[in-house]
Structures are given as C-alpha cells and as structure tokens.
Amino acid sequence: MFTGLVTDVGRVVAVDGDARLRRIVIESAYAPDGIALGASIACSGPCLTAVSVESHGAGCRFAVDAAAETLDRTTVGLWREGTRVNLERSLRLGDEMGGHLVTGHVDGIAEIVARETVTGEDNPWGASERFTLRAPAAFAAFIAEKGSVCLDGTSLTVNAVSGRDFSVLLIPHSLSVTTWEERRAGDRVNLEVDLIARYAARLAEARGLMPG
C-alpha cells in the first residue's frame, strides 16, 4: 500500500525488452540499503517490484520488470531513457498516513485536456496550476468532487467534475517535488480511482444482484 505522497523523482536510465516484458532501470536518490530485493515501489502510479538494486553516486539504481498487462494499461510502455518518474516506497506499519490509501494498481490512463495558472494577489510562494483531465469512460463514475484520486502516483483532491472531465489543483511545492511541472495539455497520466469509491460501487452492484 502507498499514500500518493511522492518521496523522490527518479530518472529512467535504461529500457530493455519487448511488448511482453520490459526491464526498466531507474536512478534514484534512495539509499540502496533501503530497498530490499522484491520490494514494492510505486513508479508514477504502478506498483512495481525491485528485481535488482545497486549503489550509484549518493543514491542507487534499481531495476523493475513490467509485464504486458502493465505496458498495456499504463504509461510505462511510453517510458524511455531520460523519462522522469514519481517514486514512493511502500508503507510500513507505524508510518504517517498522509494522502490517501493507494494500491498502485492503475485503472487506466487519463488525458490532460487543459492547464491554467492560478495566481493570488501578493502570493510570495508562486502560482498554483489547475489541470483538467479526461477520465476513461469506464472509470468516470468513480471520481467525485472533493474526493481523492491518484494521478501518476500523486494523491490529489478533485476540485470539480463535469461528465468525464475533472480538475485538480497543484500548489507550488507539489509542482517542485514531482513531475507535474513538466505536464502539459495532451499528456497522458496513470489514473487510480479511490479505493473506497471502487468498493462502494461494487457493493451497490452486488446488492442489485442479490435476491430480495
């Protein structure tokens, strides 16, 4: 499990394989002794398994394998050398629960349809950015105003919803510690809907199937 609070921005340094299985090496500021073989790491949303770890400079390089399902349903298949990715290591018992509960199981890909700067008078911390995104039709119903959503591994609050479109606001700090400063209209991002919304919808569906 994760929280959607990004703790490092890594960089892809190597990609090998094909559409069935791809090995991706990511450079990170994480200490190598803090990543065990087999550890789960959220990489811009998808939960991937560390299959190798080695020291590199002040941090490390770790490799993950992405199978066909991940390559088909996420943006991982688009990653190339130099791609920057939001990273978060899995929760441990006793960790502070910030953000919201995130599984790292990406539901689909959302597209950014607009980005606008939101400024405040005499704001010494800089401008925030509002992103409007379009969700896949199958998952639009799970996104609610003031609810939570995970986009490229980042826990965000939904500001508004209109059909399949919804908006989120990123403050200057969030922009500076994630890959969101690079995002523009037309970009695609990994979407994971709120876990509670998913189960609530399934429960409602199951009740409709139950005999009266």
Rank of each mutant, 00 (worst) to 15 (best):
R92P: 00
G34E: 03
C43D: 04
A50I: 11
A200C: 13
L191C: 01
G120E: 05
N159I: 00
E96P: 07
G153K: 15
A42P: 11
F166S: 14
A63W: 02
A110W: 15
S28D: 02
L156H: 06
R61K: 14
V149M: 03
V118Q: 03
V118M: 01
R23F: 03
R23D: 10
P32A: 02
V102Q: 05
D72R: 14
S162P: 06
E182S: 15
N159T: 08
A141W: 08
V12Q: 06
E121I: 13
L195D: 08
I35N: 08
L5F: 00
E182A: 14
A68G: 09
L5V: 08
V6M: 03
T117H: 10
A135E: 05
S40I: 00
L5A: 09
L209Y: 11
G17Y: 00
L203E: 11
V118R: 06
A58E: 12
R80A: 14
L133I: 14
A42Y: 01
V76S: 12
V189G: 07
V106R: 05
A114N: 15
R20C: 01
V193S: 12
A197F: 09
D152E: 14
S52W: 07
I41Q: 00
L91I: 10
G34T: 12
A141Y: 08
A110K: 13
V12R: 09
R11H: 00
P46A: 08
S28K: 03
L71G: 07
F62W: 11
V102H: 06
T83A: 09
R115L: 02
T74M: 02
C150E: 02
G208K: 12
E81T: 13
A141L: 07
C60N: 04
K146F: 04
V113D: 00
E111V: 05
R184H: 04
A185W: 00
